[in-house]
Simulated assay, not measured.
Amino acid sequence: MAERAKFRLFPQKQGFFPFVWAVYLVLPILNLRGETGMKLILGGIMIAVFAISYRQLYWVRGGVFNVWLFIQMLIIVVLSLFYTPYNLYMGFFTANFIAYYTENKGFKIAFASFVIMILSVLVLVGREMEWGSVMFLAPFIIIMLISPFGVRSMNRNQKLEKELDQANEVIKELVKREERMRIARDLHDTLGHTLSLITLKSQLVEKLVTKNTERAQEEAREIQRTSRAALRQVRELVSEMRAVSVAEELAEAGEMLRTAEIALEVEGDISLEGVSDLTQNILSLCIKEAVTNIVKHSRADKCFIGVAKLAGEVRITVKDNGIGLQHGERGNGGLSDGNGMKGMAERLSLIDGSLSLSSAEGQGATLIVTIPLIVKDAQGGETA
């Protein structure tokens, strides 16, 4: 048996806005004070129908929307003419829904009908109203006539923002797809030929083992050199795929800190021209870990990240103004010295980097990451 749909008074995407406006439906009820008999009953019925139309207009569209909007305007006219002219303020409800028309033609027709309704009421009741009362209503009527344009503009902006977000998602997916195709091409172009060469040479060695030992040994050494070249190509490809520059990571960090309401100040040349992708990638991972700890534990409202390219080294400084590393609970304040710090140290050791962490309780923490620009050669003559 199908589960029954949950009843909602207003669409969830509208938030609390419809409920706030619904409170003002109390005012036309208060305007019924002093009425008696059938006039009181009819007034109550009309306000109840108006409340129903208010809810329905959030849910329906098309021809049904037009019918409910017409009912609203008709009720406003009757309540303004036969009860009190101050019920004309209920037009604010209708003005809001007129902005829901997406087509210019529908909007113009609804707005013209709305203007005719207001002018008709003013002409019919204006003679009986005092000049002061007319002047009191004038500002509200002007705002009422302007509000459909303002609400419509706001709705359009929200729609454009939503479409922009969707477009950005599509672009991200296309970029991912293109990146996959690029990786596939690179693997085919760079490794296909090399692996084929290794296969052919290994077959040649197999034939030469019994016939020409020296030639077989030479070919075997050639296979070793070729395999090392292939390994180097794989490492380069992996490095390019995973590499994140310091500038890119700082942009991500800024977004994370902004979401956590922590102000970020960045100082120095973040482009780090001439610094290898591997070095920048490890620095980026260190920045990510440090910023994540600040957001989770520091209780800070300011963060400073300094980038300095000195003689022979790159230095990254990350500071916060939070609670610092607490005595006896070193992992709970700001730039933690727990597993995150161990992970940073392990990454930095790959390229002879180092880090230092200092903190004064209640005065924040400071992390300094240093990486030499000249990296030692690894075994086998390959550069790390």
Rank of each mutant, 00 (worst) to 15 (best):
L264R: 07
L79N: 01
L195R: 10
V20Q: 07
L278I: 08
E128A: 14
A251F: 05
A300M: 02
S202A: 14
V291C: 07
L145P: 01
I76H: 00
T194H: 11
R347A: 14
C303Q: 06
V20S: 11
G254N: 12
A290I: 05
V134M: 14
L285C: 07
T279L: 00
P28D: 00
T370Y: 08
E289D: 12
G312A: 08
R185E: 13
T370I: 12
K376F: 06
T190H: 11
G312E: 07
E218N: 14
G37S: 03
L32F: 03
F92T: 04
W59V: 11
I305E: 01
E382I: 12
R152Y: 04
V64I: 15
Q280I: 00
R4H: 10
A365H: 04
Q363R: 14
V20C: 08
Q233C: 10
M344G: 08
Q12V: 12
A243K: 02
I223H: 01
D352I: 03
T317C: 05
D165E: 15
I71Q: 06
S359L: 05
I374R: 06
F19H: 13
I351S: 01
G62K: 05
I282L: 13
S358A: 12
V291H: 03
I118F: 06
D277P: 10
Q217G: 11
R61D: 15
S202T: 15
F304I: 05
N168A: 06
F136R: 05
